[in-house]
Design a protein around this nucleic acid. Structure first.
Length: 331
DNA sequence: CACTTCGGCGCG
DNA sequence: AAAGCGCGCCGAAGTG
């Protein structure tokens, strides 16, 4: 037994079975079965049963007052977790198609939470990377591993990406150790070097925590608050969990503020100027539109522009948009 | 039969 | 002992 669940049962989660499959045949087969069973039960079987008899479409419901950070949530069905990461999963996504004569446009914010971190922290190094239009994970790799931008290896970029994401979630050296499968000391060295190169981020993290402990809340760009009742708890586990939430909420929540502002702007614009264009879905940093084929290119560039101009930060917001005959193709 | 809890896993 | 944030839905098992 490699790991236990919080209730004390032997864990059979993916990571555990992956490790067991080095020694045994069965775990790998179980994992393959689970992958396919998940796709069938949650997506294939469920979605076809939920078609609205009148519209012949699937309609989600967006909950506006559920999440702690200010994101929307999507239910019955959840359309914010449609597969995309694997080839098998993407076949589910291909089933999302527009009416005849129409086309889908997907437009998503690029690295929005890291950009917000650059803006809120005013870190010069991170800000420069975005202002120069660099690949931010490669730029981080160059800094952390002390190499030229052009000499960054795939593996170094992968590590830097884990660092960038991990930081926004309040990850420790221990977490990075597990993520990258490297010795603890090595992970600690990466983080130390990171904070030497990005002192603004280091100060921002420290200030956010200190402020949270003082106020008992953190807030987003537009002033949405998350109250943190356990930020000063005597129980270390609970306190540390609250500290991680304090780090993450302003980043995740500000991104939610921005896309909501964009949605409001776009809704007003479409009603007035392009009533034939329908804003049909939101997936946290992505908006999906259904529009007649004829002027789809113009619609796409207009939506991209409105999303990029929803707010003005110290660094540019970049939106990547594409057109497709199904959701997979548009993404 | 409806409901709850748990472990697991899909997404950003 | 746990050590990366935020969600919702599935099947299995247990409850009444």
């Amino acid at each position: 037994m490699l790991k236990k669940t919080p209730k004390g049962q032997p864990s059979t989660n993916e990571e555990t079975l992956q490790r067991l499959s080095e020694e045994y045949e069965l775990p790998k087969i179980i994992l393959q079965y689970r992958t396919l069973a998940k796709l069938k039960s949650t997506y294939t079987d469920s979605l076809i049963r939920i078609e609205n008899p009148v519209s012949k479409r699937i309609h989600t419901s967006y909950q506006q007052a559920i999440t702690s950070t200010g994101r929307l949530s999507s239910t019955e069905p959840n359309l914010q977790n449609i597969p995309i990461k694997t080839a098998e999963g993407r076949r589910i996504r291909e089933a999302f198609v527009p009416d005849k004569n129409n086309i889908l446009i997907s437009a998503d914010y690029s690295q929005i939470e890291l950009r917000i971190m650059a803006h809120l922290s005013k870190d010069t190094n991170l800000t420069n990377a975005f202002n120069k239009g660099l690949d931010v994970h490669s730029a981080t790799a160059a800094e952390v591993f002390g190499v030229n931008l052009d000499d960054v290896t795939q593996d170094q970029r992968r590590s830097a990406k884990a660092i960038n994401f991990g930081l926004m979630y309040g990850m420790s050296a221990f977490g990075l150790t597990r993520q990258l499968d490297i010795p603890r000391a090595e992970a600690q060295k990466y983080l130390d070097t990171y904070f030497e190169r990005y002192t603004g981020v280091k100060e921002y993290m420290a200030n956010t925590k200190a402020q949270a402990k003082e106020d008992m809340f953190v807030e987003t760009l537009m002033g949405r608050r998350l109250y943190l009742n356990e930020i000063n708890a005597a129980n270390g586990l609970r306190r540390q969990a609250a500290e991680r939430a304090a780090i993450n909420a302003p980043l995740q929540g500000s991104a939610a503020d921005i896309i909501k502002k964009a949605m409001i702007d776009i809704d007003a614009f479409l009603n007035k100027e392009m009533p034939e264009v329908k804003m049909i879905m939101q997936v946290h940093d992505e908006l999906i539109f259904e529009t007649p084929k004829k002027n789809a290119e113009e619609v796409m560039s207009t939506m991209k522009n409105m999303m990029e101009k929803a707010v003005e930060l110290d660094i540019p917001l970049i939106v990547e948009a594409a057109i497709g005959t199904n959701w997979n193709e548009a993404h």
